[in-house]
Amino acid sequence: MSSPHSSVATPQATRLAPPLAGARNYPAQKPAEVYLFGTCVLDLFFPEAGMDAIRLLEREGIRVHFPQGQSCCGQPAYTSGYTDEAREVARAQLALFSHDWPVVVPSGSCAGMFRHHYAELFHDEPATLRQVEALAARTYELAEFLLEVCRIQLDDRGSPIKVALHTSCSARREMGTHVHGRSLLSQLGQVERVDHDHESECCGFGGTFCVRMPDISGAMVRDKTAALAGAGADAVVSADCGCLLNINGAFEKQQQSLRGEHLASFLLRRTGGKSDGVQS
């Protein structure tokens, strides 16, 4: 998606919605090397999911680079209205990906930040904007990358299990991660995906929303955990660590045994890969 400003003649011209996005074109060839952008929440709270993502990519014959200078995509400040601070943090990430390798992000909302919101942040810096647009074009959410670029073939080695999939809202709406996640799970012969009540509804995380509006957020996560627990699933899987932090925290507080797991860890384990297993 290009900048919302690029289609208008003057800054004050009445805005039209961006044109309908067509299906994304994926490279015909699997790349030899990729960058992994780990995301800040995963870095601190779910590092094993990041390692499992790396192992999945390596198993596909891809060399993974993890720029040690990476931190956060800038989203927390951006969604809180601190646009200048978000822009500077975004600028620091932009400098990390000097080769034109794909950037794989094991979190849909952070991938969406790269793909859709950086252009807004840098709309009046033409040189940076070009760099941002190039980055957006090669940014993939992990599930999307495994499915559409690696064209991964998963061989399920686990025993029969019922799984509920929760997709983060921005991952769903900005990256289509729910479709990719379902498609990957459907490759696993012994895995039955069960829908939970109001599957597409937000878990109540919403970044700083969960602490700014604790009553509403709390009501949302209680409903989400009740729906997941009531779905008859043996496991809960999600590709977004913000949601996992929220959902798992609520499960723990409610003294339920169910915990959500990152999709990367689940896929790796089901297909005979060895996870670090350092569950937080």
């Binding site: 992994l36 780990g38 995963l42 870095d43 601190l44 709270f45 779910f46 590092p47 094993e48 990041g50 390692m51 790396i54 993890f66 040690q68 990476q70 604790p214 957020s217 709390g218 996560v221 209680r222 932090l245 929220n246 925290g249 609520a250 723990e252 507080k253 670090d276 350092v278 937080s280």
Partner: peptide, 16 residues
């Protein structure tokens, strides 16, 4: 509404 989040033993930066 949730338990306090617990950081992992080592960051992804270190593991990677």
């Amino acid at each position: 509404h949730r338990s306090a989040p617990k950081p992992a033993a080592r960051t992804l930066h270190e593991l990677a």
